[in-house]
Write a protein that binds this DNA or RNA. Sequence first.
DNA 1: CTTTTTACCTATCAAGTCAATAGGTTTTTT
DNA 2: AAAAAACCTATTGACTTGATAGGTAAAAAG
Lengths: 136, 136
Amino acid sequence: MISTRGRYALRVMLDLAQQNSGHYTPLDEIAARQEISKKYLEIILKTLVQNRLLVGLRGKGGGYKLTRTPAEYTVGEILELMEGTLAVVACLQNDAESCKRNPICITLPMWKRFDEMIHDFFFHITLEDLIQGRYS
Amino acid sequence: MISTRGRYALRVMLDLAQQNSGHYTPLDEIAARQEISKKYLEIILKTLVQNRLLVGLRGKGGGYKLTRTPAEYTVGEILELMEGTLAVVACLQNDAESCKRNPICITLPMWKRFDEMIHDFFFHITLEDLIQGRYS
DNA sequence: CTTTTTACCTATCAAGTCAATAGGTTTTTT
DNA sequence: AAAAAACCTATTGACTTGATAGGTAAAAAG
């Protein structure tokens, strides 16, 4: 299950992608348009800024804007950043302690395939794709 | 993320599928072989029995056994039963209250596609497939 | 140089889920 | 009557989720 953190982040990125890329959009505006709690969004945007997916500017005329063109963001990187991992089972996470049952686990190959499928899916969709409706 | 409930259930079903289908296998044996807490497995097996994926028999010589051949179980039905749902986002769950943003949500089509992909994947793999190593 | 606007930061919270444990009851066979 | 096994109800600690509260720092406008 993708949590609200990932889904909201994606919606924010899309919101910004649909704005004039020249100016900064304040959080209030995004929150109002997306109908998401401003304070909660703040936490999400913080992560996006810290990881340079967005840039924030303070003071009047400030707000947030993208650091790249919409075509240069994949849905996968946004979701992975917010969710921590997209791995479906514990033993396939980056930091997973190697399970001693791995050699005899007959479900592991299936989980691996599934993992690859998810990765391929999300890392081949860009914000631009979504905006252009290439998934409707 | 698939939780241990789903993963353990799958392992138990595979364990039973690999036993002589004639007799009943006691919980103790399964728990020992799979190295999973007996008490915790009890909860999982209860659900499987209640939904007729397994049948349980009490008393000496009792235990659990499959109600169908391994080829007649899909991984999808086992996981969906244990996890409640395989839906990746809240708005695609069975009991989801219809989100008023649906008509304008540009991420929804993507989630739908993803959902279908997951469904297709898991509902086309049977226990027999895993046992025969058709996923290694 | 003060006010306004805005992002940024730290802490906290209630509700829920997850994985597991504990202890007892019922059924069946020996 | 005893043993073996499933079945049942309740409880727990740790963690996550989604959110709120209140304050600080920077930038622009007047």
